[in-house]
Simulated scan of single mutants.
Amino acid sequence: MKASEMHLIRTGFDGLDISYPLTISEDLAALMREARETTETGNGVVGYFMHNGIEMSVAATGSRGGYAYRCDTGYSGPQGEIWFFKHPSGNSDEWGVRVSCRALPLALDGLTKTRASIEDTLAKLGLAYVPGTESIGRVDVACDILAPDLAPDRAHFISHARSTVKEISDSLVQVVGRSGRVESITIGKNPNRQVVLYDKRAEVFATGKGYWWPIWDAALEAKGLPPLDLSLRTASAVWRVEIRAFKRHLKDKWEVTTWADLRKKLPQILAEALGTVRYVVPNGDSNRARWPVHPLWSLVGHAVAEDMHDLASMVDPAIITKLLKEERDEMLFKQIAGCMLSRAALNDVPDSRLGAYVMGSADQIVRDWQRKPEQTTAKLAQARAKYGGVVE
């Protein structure tokens, strides 16, 4: 692959929010309230509830909009969804359930499987969902492009000549960068629509979202292309074009509320976004509206013209699971090591006694576990639930 070549790696969904006119039962609310109280104690123990094969952690606080319970099927990790529930009494708003889907499961499963998973959870929670009653509040579509030579310029974003907006207002544009290099350009604001171009490679390195590497490599392999060489920016410069359609844009402009509405109108929504906001290449013409569309924009336009409902990554999910487990294990090990050093410093332990102090601390921890077997068993069960460990 030549360093200057530009390739579309993958297209998929990166975000989804959806609400349902459903209300949990008093019994289910009691389980969530008990779990929330456990989390509220502030001793580091996170409460969780189990019901009919469904298991969720419960945060110490709810969420705006009257949601009393903020639950997580991924235990605050990159997997699963965040669920918001209103208490079954004292609330006149019928929209008692909201779900916010994370990027990783959407990338792995696509929209069809994600929808099926949500509806399966609703059924297991005893909620009688009627298809067509849902309200989609947000959908994000992302295209990842290997573009080694791309150097975005805010001035190269323009509105379409036929658009009622003749120029892109500075109040609608956010540019982020460092060391003289632009890393992201965002056009538009919530609750309407955003079109974003950003350096996904830089974000992955900054946030530790290493699961994107195997997802990209699997997509490249399917196209007959070599994997990304992370040691060279020119060989792994992945840029993302993301279109985010929020509730007002979906409902007021496109009359999109249900799954059926979204499937029917999504291609038009994406095409209109890419036509209204264009990334172009200057050619010397005094009329910026006549500048040709950048090859990057053409790649994205062709990609989102296809039916995207069943898009899913070709990567083996076991690879992602193993990677996430290794990352969590490394994070916990570093935390333990750091805490040991801090405790040694607090207790004036000399360097020569550091090893013996750590071993003694480990023995002390084991003895403490043995003195409180029931509490230890409960905490271990919670940790296994959180991290997917083997249950004895």
Rank of each mutant, 00 (worst) to 15 (best):
Lys124Asp: 12
Lys124Ser: 12
Lys124Thr: 02
Lys124Leu: 14
Leu125Arg: 10
Leu125Tyr: 09
Leu125Met: 11
Gly126Leu: 01
Gly126His: 06
Gly126Tyr: 05
Leu127Arg: 08
Ala128Ile: 03
Tyr129Leu: 08
Tyr129Pro: 01
Tyr129Glu: 13
Val130Asp: 10
Val130His: 05
Val130Leu: 15
Val130Trp: 01
Val130Cys: 02
Pro131Gln: 00
Pro131Cys: 11
Pro131Asp: 09
Gly132Pro: 11
Gly132Glu: 05
Thr133Phe: 00
Thr133Cys: 04
Thr133Asp: 15
Glu134Lys: 07
Glu134Pro: 09
Glu134Gly: 04
Ser135Tyr: 12
Ser135Ala: 15
Ser135Asp: 14
Ile136Phe: 04
Gly137Met: 10
Gly137Thr: 09
Gly137Gln: 11
Arg138Ile: 05
Arg138Trp: 04
Val139Asp: 06
Val139Lys: 02
Val139Arg: 04
Val139Leu: 10
Val139Phe: 01
Asp140Leu: 09
Asp140Ala: 14
Asp140Pro: 10
Val141Cys: 11
Val141Glu: 04
Val141Leu: 13
Ala142Leu: 00
Ala142Gly: 01
Ala142Pro: 00
Cys143Pro: 02
Asp144Arg: 02
Ile145Val: 15
Ile145Ala: 06
Leu146Val: 01
Ala147Asp: 12
Ala147Trp: 02
Pro148Asn: 04
Pro148Phe: 00
Leu150Gln: 04
Leu150Met: 14
Leu150Asp: 00
Ala151Asp: 08
Pro152Ile: 05
Pro152Cys: 07
Ala155Met: 06
Ala155Phe: 00
His156Pro: 00
His156Tyr: 13
His156Thr: 03
Phe157Cys: 09
Ile158Val: 14
Ile158Glu: 05
Ile158Leu: 08
Ile158His: 00
Ser159Asp: 10
Ser159Gln: 05
Ser159His: 07
Ser159Met: 06
His160Thr: 03
His160Glu: 10
Ala161Lys: 11
Ala161Val: 07
Arg162Asp: 15
Arg162Val: 08
Ser163Leu: 04
Ser163Ile: 05
Ser163Val: 00
Val165Tyr: 15
Lys166Cys: 06
Ile168Ala: 06
Ile168Gln: 11
Ser169Arg: 15
Ser169Phe: 09
Ser169Gly: 15
Ser169Val: 00
Ser169Thr: 06
Asp170Glu: 14
Asp170Thr: 09
Ser171Leu: 08
Ser171Gly: 14
Ser171Asp: 13
Ser171Val: 05
Leu172Asp: 14
Leu172Lys: 13
Val173Arg: 10
Gln174Met: 09
Val175Leu: 09
Val175Asn: 01
Val175Met: 05
Val175Lys: 07
